[in-house]
Design a protein around this nucleic acid. Structure first.
Lengths: 168, 168
DNA sequence: CTTGAAAATCGCTTTAC
DNA sequence: GTAAAGCGATTTTCAAG
């Protein structure tokens, strides 16, 4: 799309201070979460505001960091990566967290990683073409990335949930 | 943006047939995954192709379903939902899966749900303002949604990973 | 916040090569 | 696949209420 301010992609805002949104902000965000390329005019028609007012609010939400950016939503399953696994992982003693995270860059199948509390250190989201590739990734994680224990589950289905819901 | 074909948002394609992408397709997808509002001209400059050729490829990828759509990337933590939990869940005997999933619509804190193999039936991603709200959600899941067992972990940090990596 | 206007940009299509 | 043109639509910015 045209002259939307796409840069700065990251807006620095004072952290830890919650941004409170009114009803109109939430409606605008809901529209953009559903269609990230909606024009100001299209948003304004769904929100009962002038396009200029909508543009002002979107720019503000962008500067506040509520809108991090806009991304294409890709379906990697269509490209052949049909197997998704959620793998809980423990690191061996002495393995640095940051080092482990950096080493994940070498594994393109690992598309997500969260540091969590509880029995395991991380949960990884792994996208593979099949079980053979998953087996190889698991072996690599143990041998080259400091993983001591690994427990994987296969994703049978992702439940469709409106990304807008958390704004309520 | 202007006259980009944003609808149909969902393209129906013959399922289970993998789409194979060449190097240029992958480069284009990488750009759009990073900036979902990049113009054809901007993409073409990063990919060494004419804008027309880029537009043709993007339209094809959209029709093939590789590009599902475009979404605003929201930072809900800035709106006050600073606590994220991953909750593994088992359903009580006799509780229908589809009914459980439908009932999740009533819990706006539940922003993700995956049906998985293994010890638990689902993993939920829950976004809350604090531990009090998480406690309330957990109680509600058990009392009103047919959850028998529930095991939650707090997300300490999400590791930043390039969403483009799985294309390699 | 709304309305109105200007200039610049973009998407789309068509026409060549 | 490239290059160039025209048309319609959109964004941006600026003005004024």
């Amino acid at each position: 799309m045209p002259n939307q301010p796409r840069k700065p992609q990251n807006a620095s805002v004072s952290p830890n201070r919650p941004v409170d949104l009114d009803r109109l902000d939430r409606e605008i965000l809901a529209v953009l979460a559903h269609d990230g390329r909606a024009t100001y005019q299209e948003v304004s028609q769904q929100v009962r505001l002038s396009a200029n007012a909508v543009a002002d609010r979107i720019r503000r939400l962008r500067a506040q960091g509520v809108i991090r950016g806009y991304r294409a939503d890709l379906d990697l399953a269509r490209t052949g990566r049909t197997l998704t696994a959620l793998s809980d992982v423990n690191l061996r003693d002495g393995v640095e967290h940051r080092g482990f995270e950096a080493s994940l860059e070498q594994l393109p199948q690992v598309v997500g990683a969260v540091h969590v509390t509880g029995e395991y250190d991380y949960q990884l989201r792994i996208l593979c073409t099949g079980t053979e590739e998953l087996e190889a990734v698991v072996e690599t994680l143990k041998q080259d990335h400091g993983v001591r224990e690994l427990r994987s589950r296969i994703v049978l289905r992702e439940v469709e949930l409106d990304p807008t819901r958390a704004l309520a």
